[in-house]
């Protein structure tokens, strides 16, 4: 196993390459997923606020 991580003495060059690759791959998947969740939450919050405002105004008119 140690031999595998040593990469014939080139471990210090091979592993950072793969690590950076992984980080970039993860980052570009995580960012849009987060963004979509944020926008959906924003819409939901707005809908709830508008719903409450509508309730209040209808209660006041009674």
């Amino acid at each position: 196993m140690n031999e595998f991580f040593a990469m014939g003495g080139y471990g210090a060059f091979v592993w950072p390459s793969y690590l950076l690759g992984f980080l970039i791959l993860i980052a570009h998947v995580a960012a849009p997923a987060n963004r979509r969740r944020r926008v959906l939450n924003e819409i939901r919050r707005r809908l709830r606020r508008e719903g409450r405002a509508a309730d209040k105004s209808s209660a006041g008119s009674e």
Partner: peptide, 17 residues
């Protein structure tokens, strides 16, 4: 292809929120 789809999806939703 995957990332373009999900990024464009988020972008479309954001523009049309």
């Amino acid at each position: 292809a995957w990332v373009v789809l999900i990024s464009a999806r988020a972008e479309v939703l954001d523009r049309d929120k």
